[in-house]
Amino acid sequence: MQTSWILCFTSVAKVLSRLSMRLKSTGRPSAPLGSRILTDRDDVFKHNMWDHVQWTEEDKENARQKAEDNSCVRIPVTEQGKYNTGAGQYWDSFYETHQDKFFKNRTWLFLEFPELLPLGAHSSDANGRQSGEPPSCGFSSDAETRGHQHSSITEQHRNGDTADCQQEDSTQTVTFPGQHAPFRILEVGCGVGNSVFPIVKSIKETGTYLYCCDFSPRAIQMVKEHPDYDRSVCHAFVHDLCEEMASFPFPPQSLDVILAVFVLSSIHPERMQEVVNRLSAYLKHGGTLLFRDYGRYDFSQLRFKKGRCLSENFYARGDGTCVYFFTKEEVHTLFTNAGLEEIQNLEDRRLQVNRGKKVAMQRVWMQSKYRKPCPLPS
């Protein structure tokens, strides 16, 4: 009994020691999802972002009431159809207006999603740490599982789980861009390339090929005109994920990774499942779908005014683009119904700070990893 108590005390001491070191760090917080913890409310305006923020019951109730209030007046049913049929035009106008100035390049990708690189490849972040190295886990209410989940999927990926799946190679008899690449990635809803170009920069000389698509022709045009666009490792194309008959330029079961970052939320909730089902069909057995998107009661949901709600937790912005806000349970159902198995499914709660205006905003994002299981041996 005494030995167990000593071991428990030692484990707690180690965790507190690691947390103390993180709080003193001035570099980028470690993955997954950061580890800059706000322990003193008086320090809130010292940084632009705080990680793993714990909501009180009062916070949750206030958020629920705000969402209920801003969704009580909905866009008339007779007007809702235009947001579906005109989605492509709305996003085309968005990119025409904002060009590549609206979103920043996602340099955090390889810290949170090391699965984007094939076995043996590395991508260094600003602090010189390589994505091939298992990162330390975050510290929050979910921390006890985060480190294990993140290290587990990274190890499985590095050890070649995809290669271990015995399957027929459907790519050998079909001619398509990137057909000879041993590792293939697809980014859906790529926009103007904020994920594309960090990936392109990191995959050269790794044998990896990247496909990227968006249903905005203007966005794809901007990707192709970018000076870092490299046709030898990347193929950009226009594609509507909701169009059942639209084909991809590669065969089923040919992808190692599918990346969906802030894209499924723009699709009507009633159509999301069919989209994920179709995407799943293009993953190899052992392939991974990486997902990041808006979470329920994010600041951006609570700031909507009355009359912008289309359906429960689904809104139309002033420019005509739409956005949905997910829960962990909805994400899990969406991907497991498509035949994928959970590797990671996290709710990322952060406090985003505008130090100039002295405003703190509670952000909620979902981050998930789901894998296509290997078929059982006959």
Score class of each variant (00 low, 15 high):
P217S: 03
P217Y: 01
P217V: 02
P217N: 01
R218L: 13
R218F: 13
R218K: 13
A219G: 08
A219F: 04
A219L: 04
A219P: 06
I220Q: 02
I220A: 07
I220C: 04
I220K: 01
Q221I: 03
Q221G: 09
Q221Y: 09
Q221T: 14
Q221V: 02
M222L: 14
M222V: 00
M222P: 01
M222G: 00
V223H: 01
V223N: 00
V223G: 00
V223Y: 01
K224Y: 10
K224H: 09
K224I: 12
K224F: 09
K224A: 12
K224E: 14
E225G: 02
E225Y: 00
H226C: 05
H226K: 02
H226A: 05
P227F: 06
P227T: 05
P227Y: 04
D228R: 07
D228T: 04
D228C: 03
D228Q: 10
D228M: 12
Y229M: 07
Y229N: 10
Y229H: 09
Y229P: 14
Y229S: 12
D230H: 07
D230Y: 01
R231H: 09
R231G: 08
S232W: 01
S232G: 09
V233F: 08
V233C: 15
V233N: 12
C234P: 11
C234Y: 06
C234I: 04
H235I: 06
A236G: 11
A236H: 02
F237Q: 03
F237E: 10
V238C: 11
V238L: 05
V238I: 14
H239Y: 15
H239C: 14
H239P: 02
H239V: 05
H239L: 15
D240P: 10
D240M: 04
L241F: 09
L241A: 07
C242Q: 11
C242K: 08
C242R: 11
E243V: 01
E243S: 14
E243I: 03
E244H: 07
E244C: 00
E244N: 08
E244M: 10
M245S: 14
M245T: 15
A246Q: 14
A246R: 06
A246C: 07
S247T: 14
S247G: 07
F248V: 08
F248H: 07
F248S: 07
